[in-house]
């Protein structure tokens, strides 16, 4: 059993919460809905994000037991469960990003801590610090090509790959969970900037923003 003090960052009683893009959407008023849009942009807000750090073997055993998924051992890879809602991504040789549906993260953290016992590791709940954008549509790759230095050609960036890289003038974790969508994990404070950058880059193809 772990002797680390934990606390649930989600307050009881379900008070209203605002996504990092709340003010952006408010100021924008009407969200873009172009006909024949080449790009569809959506924010997946309020997901549970955990950063796992520690040895790959001990963490792998724990996530197999708790989440029923293997830890991606190869650099720049991503594993998803069958529903596609839970994912684990390699960030560095001793660091992984776990994203689960919102509300699950505290229970997951407790169960992982229990599974890991007194091993040398760390789990940090970063749910409030970052948000996820999904980019879909036939021109999504074109928009990314304008924004990031990383090679997003389907040969260089197959499904199941994820990298942290430079995006516009900020940094994002860019990943490809399935054939027709791209995900960007962005910092909360860069969410507005990245959102507006994406809309600007997508202007020539037409964009639809879904909430």
């Amino acid at each position: 059993m772990s002797d680390v003090k934990e606390f649930d960052t989600r307050p009881a009683g379900n008070p209203s919460a605002e996504s990092p893009l709340a003010w952006t959407f408010h100021r924008q008023g009407v969200l873009p809905r172009d006909a024949n849009a080449g790009v569809r942009l959506r924010e997946k807000s309020f997901l549970g994000h955990l950063i796992l750090r520690g040895g790959a073997i001990i963490l792998d055993e724990a996530v197999r037991e708790v989440l029923g998924m293997a830890l991606p051992a190869r650099p720049n890879t991503l594993t998803l469960d069958e529903s596609g809602e839970r994912s684990i991504q390699w960030l560095s040789p001793d660091e992984w990003l776990v994203i689960v549906p919102g509300g699950e993260e505290f229970a997951l953290e407790s169960r992982l801590r229990k599974a890991m016992g007194q091993a040398h590791y760390s789990i940090i709940n970063v749910s409030g610090g970052q948000t996820v954008f999904t980019l879909q549509g036939e021109k999504a790759r074109e928009v990314l090509m304008k924004s990031t230095l990383y090679d997003v050609h389907t040969q260089a960036f197959p499904v199941g790959k994820g990298v942290s890289t430079v995006f516009a003038k900020s940094t994002v974790v860019l990943r490809r969970p399935n054939e027709d969508s791209w995900e960007l994990v962005v910092r909360r404070s860069f969410a507005d900037y990245c959102y507006r950058w994406l809309l600007d880059a997508a202007a020539e193809y037409g964009a639809i923003v879904e909430r």
């Binding site: 650099p75 720049n76 560095s92 040789p93 230095l149 990383y150 990298v163 890289t165 430079v166």
Partner: peptide
């Protein structure tokens, strides 16, 4: 560590 070539930036 990433086992691939990345931009100098």
């Amino acid at each position: 560590y990433c086992e691939e070539h990345r931009e100098e930036e």
